[in-house]
């Protein structure tokens, strides 16, 4: 700012605080709700201060007693974690390899393959969901972790991102490696992957959250409670017939479901930002 105008500062802070309140209040309410019993929660002015059932509720959620569905929340979270990590690592691995091939090797129809990959950017999972379901079902992969992960593993976005990054790596680096006697595989592992570290970190965060928040696909391929992901679990808890959902339990589950993405973002925040802003050259 050129000159100090305090009323503008106050206004800016007011809007910021307002925004923060708007974002945080629902989370706060969810937390309050998860610390009360159901009847307490149903009283006319909804309580806005924490109750005394924090430990009871969360214990119940984690161990799975008296829940509307059979699987305990820790198992659903484990399923979500397996799926999110599987999708993340799978996508990164495949995209790195695909981008490596497209940028560094001269093979027939190279540009055709690149454009084929690029075109799939326009097709979200939902468009191809029925044929994909058919394929996964005939492979006998329904109700399995592989079935949850495999169809979501190919990523045009990540391939494209790595391709762009690889193209910024000076050609001389590749030539220097050739002079040093590194073959393609050594070059890939010793030089290209370490150089792409920040891009990989940024993608890890994005893809982990993408994987964690998958909803439609797990909803289709899982029928057994053992393979429910946390999002499906929450959905099932809400879809109880002939009775009111157990709101304290649902809210506790929701808050637990938020924790892993928050951990990933907080831990990798620095690399994430660096990966998005510049490629360390």
């Amino acid at each position: 700012m050129v000159e100090k105008r305090s009323w503008l500062d106050y206004l800016a802070h007011f809007f910021l605080l307002f925004g923060i309140g708007l974002m945080l209040f629902p989370v706060y309410v969810a937390f309050i709700a998860s610390t009360h019993t159901m009847p307490e929660l149903m009283t006319a002015p909804m309580p806005l201060l924490p109750g005394d059932k924090f430990i009871d509720n969360y214990w119940q959620v984690l161990t799975g007693h008296n829940l509307a569905i059979g699987a305990p929340v820790w198992q659903m979270m484990a399923n979500s974690l397996v799926m999110a990590l599987g999708i993340t690592f799978g996508k990164i691995t495949i995209s790195l390899l695909a981008a490596f091939a497209i940028v560094y090797f001269r093979f027939a129809f190279r540009m055709l393959f690149f454009w084929l990959i690029f075109i799939t950017l326009m097709l979200p999972v939902e468009v191809r969901i029925l044929p994909t379901y058919q394929v996964v079902a005939s492979m006998g992969l329904l109700d399995s972790h592989v079935g949850l992960i495999l169809p979501l593993i190919a990523s045009a976005t990540a391939t494209f991102l790595f391709r762009q990054f690889f193209m910024t790596v000076p050609n001389e680096i590749c030539e220097a490696a050739r002079m040093d006697g590194a073959g393609p595989i050594r070059f890939f592992f010793d030089i290209l992957i370490p150089m792409s570290k920040t891009s990989i970190a940024a993608l890890f965060v994005i893809l982990f959250i993408y994987g964690w928040n998958q909803y439609l696909w797990p909803l289709l391929v899982t029928t057994q409670e053992d393979y429910y992901t946390i999002l499906i679990g929450i959905n099932r808890m809400l879809a109880v017939s002939d009775e009111v959902p157990q709101w304290p339990i649902v809210m506790a589950t929701t808050l637990l479901a938020m924790i892993p993405p928050v951990i990933v973002v907080v831990l990798m925040q620095r690399q994430f930002v660096r990966g998005l802003i510049d490629a360390e050259k």
């Binding site: 001389e172 680096i173 030539e175 220097a176 002079m179 006697g181 030089i191 150089m195 360390e280």
Partner: peptide, 17 residues
């Protein structure tokens, strides 16, 4: 690599990591 020659590049081409 088989020619047993070494090269210094204009931009040095050091491995940054």
């Amino acid at each position: 690599a088989q020619r047993d020659v070494a090269m210094v590049f204009q931009n040095y081409a050091l491995y940054p990591h």
